[in-house]
Structures are given as structure tokens and as C-alpha cells.
Design a protein around this nucleic acid. Sequence first.
RNA 1: GGGCGGUUAGCUCAGCUGGUUUAGAGCGCCUGCCUUACAAGCAGGAGGUCACUGGUUCGAAUCCAGUACCGCCCACCA
Length: 890
Amino acid sequence: MSTKDVTRTAKVQRNTAYEPSEIEDKWYRFWEENDLFRTEVNPEKQPHAIVMPPPNVTGALHMGHALQDSIQDAVTRIRRMQGYEALWVPGLDHAGIGTQNVVERQLKEEGTSRHELGREAFVERVRRWKEEYGGRILEQKRRLGDSCDWHRERYTMDDGFTRAVQEVFVHLYEEGLIYRGNYLVNWDPENETALSDEEVENVEREGKLWYVKYPIKGEDGHVVVATTRPETMLGDSGVAVHPDDERYTDLVGRNVVLPLLDRDLPVIADDYVKSEFGAGALKVTPAHDKNDFEIGRRHDLETINIMNPDGTINEHGGPYEGMDRFDARDRIVADLDALGLLVKTETTRNTVPISSRSKAVVEPLISRQWFVKMKPLAEPAVEAVRGGEITFHPQRWENEYFRWMENIRDWTISRQLWWGHRIPVWYYTTEDGEIDENRDFVVSVDQPEGGMVQDEDVLDTWFSSWLWPFATLGWPKKTPELEYFYPTSVLVSGYDILFFWIARMIMAGYHFMGEKPYGDVFITGMIKDRQGRWMSKSLGNGIDPLDMIDQYGADAVRFSLTVLCAQGQDIKLDPTKFEMGRNFANKIWNAFNVFGQFMEEEKTYRRTRSFEELELVERWILHRLHETIRDVDEAVSRYRLNEAAGLIYDLFWKDYCDWYLELIKPPFGEELEEDKIALAAEVYEKMIQLLHPFMPFITEELWSKIRPRERLDVCMTSSWPEVDAAEMDEEADEVFSLMQELVSGIRNIKSEYGVALNADIEAMVNLPSGAERLEEMLSTHRDYFEKLAGATDLMIGRGLDRPKACAAHVAGRHEVFVPLAGMIDLDVERERLRKEIEQKNGFLESVRKKLRNEQFVTKAPTDVVDRERQKEKDAREELVRLEANLEELE
RNA sequence: GGGCGGUUAGCUCAGCUGGUUUAGAGCGCCUGCCUUACAAGCAGGAGGUCACUGGUUCGAAUCCAGUACCGCCCACCA
């Protein structure tokens, strides 16, 4: 039976079992079809904007998205309810290498390749692929309940974005911040493209260190060099030793002979060489090692590139030409061994650079690429964070940011791919159609002159996504949106893309907008598996959020993730964690029935009593509600959403359900008074609002049931609850808390004596003299003791005599006696009391210790001391009572 | 080699600017309840020398220093 078909009898509002799937799609469609996520430039309202980290077009929803979206959506929904014009910009990233690989794999299955297709056809193919499959992830995000403004969905390769990217390139070039040159770059032989430093992972691996003899030219003897990559010797152009190394002083300036190729290599002296490493001599391969490149430059050594883009050895490799680099390595080692030139082989651990995309070993290779000078961009971005204009949450990430920014290196932005933004650089051609290297290139968005050809390369994907916060709002056009929503409010992302994206956006923001892209950066932890490992396809340890939504409901998934998301800590996740959220959703759902079952359809229940006229538990629950609203606001303002969610959870479950509802609930067969329904619904409604940002679907459904509504009166656009000091009541809080303790005391006694919780019993509440007001308040609510503890025969008074055979519970200066005729086991009771006395004594002793300490009494603030004194007094009185009770039993 | 994070109940984790914290939650465990909102629940309970060693302080799970183990990030040692 679906919720829509709930039987509507005279008493109408009764929920059937909670079934998330029955309400989630319905409400999402409602919100979207009624354009409720839509934002506009509205000068009447304060803007609040979040840009969604754009997922890859090839991507599928994973737990990281679910976590980050839960947070972004919660913040967006809170702000919307608080009256902000709350924009959350969705979008997609074209993901150059990733997407190209996906389509290439597809082509391979079809028995063809991109090269067979040709560039134009291939790009068209990718475009079609994107139309068909791309952006499925955004569909999936709708199932989470993301309240993005879909009208503003952007794509890093849409027309506007493409324009923005090209203009940025031209702009930076004109400023002298983009340059082209031949440098040693990270080369991915698998994808045959250059990579930025950030795209290279350094992985520690077991490796080998080979010691090789290089014979000295013209005499016997040799120099021993050590290498982890023997194949690079084909490109050696020198051997370096330390200038102070006396072993080699004579050799400097002379030549050694490169084995296998019989090439002469000069021996040079350079500070870089560490004499204590290996034999103290270093083979220098300028074309294939960063340090060697520098040494080569210093000593004017030849740069010999021995490798083809696909990782095979090229014509400079002599007999090894055409071999794969790793085959060549094996062969060279064997050949050296055969020649007696291999001294020894050691195993070592060394770090190997790996392409983060293809996982292929990255090769340092000389090639002509485009670079961005980063230092000038970094400076204002560093200043912004240092000066507090941008704040990271948690703040410790700022250190990581500074460390990277302060050591920033130039950014290799050209990629030898087909899928991506073409570099807006144009070349003149010679008569045979080749690029004319003798004429200067032209940097321009549009083709400057007929016949000129555009640079073949595309730009690093991040070169477009770093513009995300303003390009999504229309930049480079000066749009009203840009004016209104920029700078955005907060960026929510994981630390894995701190350098790739977050830092670069800050640089781009200042450089192109002259202003920060966002004021706060919320860095989430990463989702790991139960054992703390990264979730990955290869390990098969991923948890699919869509499965979890099917199983537990989107609200449960969101709520659980939010609670688990504490201050940047990684989350070790396993599916049972979602039970917490599901159980809570179920609780919320069922709690409605307690009063809902008495509500008549199409009737609005409005409280008629003033606050003063309410009964104790009602004043108390309102007090707790407003306290919670206050605390939630405070937590949210500091981005402590886990705390906010926890506060509401406790209020709803511990206070509202366990105490308040239990007390107002009428006995079976009786009605709930209208005015009580009204208050129950009032508090429930406020809690539903507080919960809505975290659990949007269930709250929306229940919102619609609490009272008759206009069609568009939905929870998501309702006004965020506000603290009402007039409905806070410290006295009610104190008295009710005491009542709770006394009830717990009675329950404990019943449980210890094996008396059923619902069994009727007699009880006496004994109050200290002078507590007339308290006595009166408790007496007015003697039914509380009956309902919650089964104390049907209750006496409340001051200075009461302790009955003979009874169990007692002491609560400060108050106590409750439970006469259990014929049931009291003196031993059990003595044991109970002794245990309590012992505990209390320990506590009293710890308090007294403090008070005996003169330093404490004189130095600690008076309110702290007073509090300790009060504690001592209370504990003493409590002990007196406990002991008196014990004596009665002796 | 530098830097960061973690170490709190059987498990997973909260615990903010030091003082109502002889420390909380969820799960698990024990006892009793199918009490007409909810067994995805209710009531009661057990369980912790807050990793270790020092220090600061009247007072430390909380601040500082060091140690140990676990994890992460960065770095050009062939």
C-alpha cells in the first residue's frame, strides 16, 4: 500500500510503514517541476552560492559524492530556509584523458582506433558519447535530493566555457605568464602525453640498483657508476664526480667510454654528486633525468633523447632501437654482464613516478610544451589565506596549502590528446602545408588569418576547471549573476584535489576576477572501506550509494554520512552505518502517528494556550526545542554539521519521543485533546524543519501531513525556525530533569527487583523542606510518575518518613522510596545502596581534593570554586540520605 | 629527508576556547518487555588507568615537548 492511498477515515493522518522509495521520487519531481530550485538575481535577498565540484562526464556516483553532496545540499537548504537566495551550481567536467580513454576502449572493442577514425571524427564520437551517456551522474545525484539549480547546469566544454578558457590562455600569454619551450616533462608513454607534476604519483617500490663499469679512455681502469635505469645510459653524455673527491681529481677533464655504444663521455666535476653514494660517480643523462638535465645545462653537455613517445628506444639507441624501454633494460643488463662490465646488483626501495591516469611508469622526457608561470599567480592567493580572507575548515589544511603554494612550480598545461580545449595558438604554414617554424606563431581565440593552422595540443582539464566559480556564472561576460553571486560562499571538496583544483581556483579567482572565489573552504575527509583502504574498482570494495539508497533510503544515507563527517577525518564506512539513519527516519515517521492518528483531515490545529498555561512537559519540550535551535545555528555557522545533526537527533529521539510523547499519549481508546495535538504538531513541525536540510524527503512528506497546505507551501522553502526566548523556561527544565531522574530511579528499582515496568507500584517522593514550589509542581504532574514508572500510588511531600521495607533512590536533595511489600531482598538493596555510596564517595573525594587545595580556592575563578562547593554540598547531602537509607536496612 | 593526521568502551567514532566530563553516541553484549507510534522498538544494565613519558597549570582526554605504533601528503638522492 502506498502512502498516497492511506485510508482516510474520520481519523485520518496515520502513516503506514515507512517506505522511502514511495516518497523520494515523488518529492524530487515536485520540487523540480515546480521550479523550486531555481534562483534568480534578487536584490531583495542576500545571495548564497556554492559551486558543485563538477564530476567527470564519465563518472558514476560514488560515496565521496554522496558525502560532499549531503553537506553542500544541507548548507544550501539551510541558507534557502534562512531567506538567502541560495544557489548551488551543478555541472560536469569534460575530463580530458579519462573520457578519451573510455571512448578509445570502446573503439578498441569495435576493432578500430582513434587513429583510424581521425581527429575530427574521434572528437565527434566523444561528443556523441557525452550526449548519450555523459552526465548520468547528474541524474544519480537527483536521487540524493540535491537541490541544485539545474537551469544553470554547466559543462567545462560548453560554448561559454570554451570561450572563457581560450580567453584566459590569450590573456595569460599576453601578460607573459604563458610560455612555450623545450623542457624535461613528465611523459606518460601509455597515453603519449605530457602530464603536470600533480598528475604523477610517486610510488615506492622494490627496485634494483646496478653498478656498471665505464672504462677510462686510453688506459686500463674504469669508473663505476650506479643506476636504477640502465637503459638510460644510451643517452649518457657525461660522468660527473664531486669536485672535492680526490679519487677522481685526475680524471676530471678526461674521457670515459660509454659501454655498448662506445661513445666518449667527458668526466666533469659537479657539486651535486654525493661522493658517499655508490662509487661516487654519476652517469649524466640530461634528456631523461631532472637533475641530470640541470647538470647537463651547467656543463654544456649534449642532450640525447633516446626514447620515442610510446616508450620504445629510438634511433639513438643503436642496437636497442625499437625495443620497449623495459625490454631494453633487461637486454642491456645482460649485455653488460656478458662483457664483464656489471659489477654488482643491489635491491633497493626507490620511488617510481606513476601516471595517475594510466598507472604507467612516467618517463622524464624532453619535449616542447606550454607552461604557466605560477609564482605571480600564487602570491595573492597565499596572501588571501594568510590574511583570513579565505578560511579553511578544518584550518590545518591551510598549512598544506601554503607549503604547496610556496614551492609552486610552473604548470605544464599542454596535453597531446584529442579530447579537450584546443590551444588557441596559430601557425603559419609552408607551401607543403607544414608548420613554418621560421615565422612567429599567433596567440588568438579566433583564427587570425586564412590558412593558418591551430596548435594540435589540447589543454589540461584543470586549466578549464580552475575557472569554475566564475565561468559558471557567465564570465568573461559581465553578467548580473556574476555581479550578484560572486564571490561564492563556501567550497566543499575533498583534500585529494586541494592542489589540482582548490588552490588553482583561488589563484584564478584573484587573477581574473580580482577577488576571492569563496570565503570558506570545507575540506571533507575521504571515504575509505571498513579496513581503512581507499575504495577502488580493482579492490572491489566500493559501496554504491545507489544501492544504499535503495536499501536504506536517501535520507538515511545522507543523515548517516553527515553524522559521520567529523572535522575532516576520513570515514571508514560499511553499509551497517546506514542503519542509524534508517532507524532514525523510521522513528520520525512513526512518531507522527502518536498525534497524527487523532488529527482530522483538512483541519489546522493551532495552540490556544499561552506558554504559561502549558503543562510542565510542554514547557520543557519547548525549552529544549529552542535550546536546540540555538545550538544548531551555532554549529552550522562553524560548519559543524555532524554536531548539528546530532543535536536534532537527540532532541527528537531522546526528548520528544522518549519523554514528551510518552507523557501526552492518551491511554488506548481515548482521544488526544486538540490543544495537545496542536502543540505536539507545532514542535514536530519545527523539528521537521530543522531536519529538512539533512533529510529532505521524509521531512517534506511529513510537512505535507501536519496540516493542510497550499500546493506550494513546502518544507524546503519554509522559514528556518527561530529561537524564541519567551518560550525558554529554566525552571521547567530543572523540575522536569529532576522528574526524569526520579522516574529513572523508580524504573531502575523495578528492574532490579524484577518488577515489570508497567506493573502498578507505590512510590513516595521526598523533598527537602522549603521546596513548596517544587512540591506543588510535581504534585500537579503526579500522572507523569504513573505513566512513566507505573507509580499509581504516589505520595509527594517534604520530610516524609521512610517506609519500612522499601528500596530508595536518591537524587541530590531529593529521594524516592519504593515500598515493595514482601519483595524487598535486604541483601540486594544493601548492595544497591553500598554501590551508590561508594560511587558518590569517590566523587565527593575528588571534589574535596580540589577544595582542600588552597591554590585552587585562591586562583580558580570564583564561579568555578562556587560550583565545586555546591557539588560538595549536594554530594554530602546525597550521601547522608543514602546512608540513612542503608541504616534503615541494617 | 620534511610535514600532517590518528591512537578514547568489544567495534566504529564524537568530545570545540582546559573547569557540571571519576568522559559521550551508534553498533555489539547482558536482563526484562510483542506495553496498539515505532522490535528498524521500549525499559534497565555491564563495559574506559582517554597509547606511553615528562612538562605547563589551582585544575589536562583537552595545551606543550618527547617516545611508540598506524595512516596520509610532499621531496631531484643516482
